[in-house]
Simulated scan of single mutants.
Amino acid sequence: MKKPIQIMIVIILLLLTIYLYNRRLASIPLLLLSIYLFLLAGAKFSLFKKNK
């Protein structure tokens, strides 16, 4: 995925976290952010293993 799109997704999820934190619903975007970062790390790790 392109770098600007990745950065925009993270920023949007962080803004949702800040907004929903006041409404006591911060766990929803934090869960989405953790899933997204986990998948991103898995993709980077598979590329690293292919190049090795």
Rank of each mutant, 00 (worst) to 15 (best):
M1V: 12
K2R: 13
K2Y: 11
K3R: 09
K3M: 12
K3C: 10
P4G: 05
P4A: 07
I5S: 08
Q6H: 09
Q6T: 12
Q6N: 07
I7T: 06
M8I: 05
M8Y: 00
I9N: 06
I9Y: 03
V10W: 05
I11P: 00
I11V: 02
I12N: 09
L13V: 02
L13E: 01
L13D: 04
L14R: 02
L14W: 00
L15F: 00
L16W: 00
L16P: 00
L16K: 00
T17C: 10
L20T: 04
Y21F: 13
Y21I: 12
Y21K: 12
N22R: 08
N22F: 11
R23N: 14
R23S: 15
R23K: 15
R23V: 08
R24T: 07
R24I: 06
R24M: 13
R24L: 08
R24A: 08
R24V: 05
L25E: 04
L25T: 02
L25H: 02
L25F: 03
S27H: 06
I28S: 05
I28G: 04
P29M: 01
P29A: 02
L30A: 04
L31R: 03
L31S: 06
L31N: 02
L32D: 03
L32T: 02
L33A: 11
S34A: 11
S34K: 13
Y36D: 05
Y36S: 04
Y36I: 04
L37D: 08
L39C: 13
L39Y: 07
L39H: 07
L39V: 11
L39E: 06
L40K: 08
A41L: 09
G42Q: 10
A43I: 07
A43Y: 06
K44C: 11
F45Q: 12
F45R: 13
F45N: 11
S46F: 09
L47S: 09
L47N: 08
L47A: 12
F48T: 10
F48Q: 10
F48V: 10
K49M: 10
K49D: 08
K49N: 14
K49G: 07
K49R: 14
K50F: 06
N51H: 15
K52R: 15
K52A: 13
K52C: 12
K52P: 11
K52Y: 14
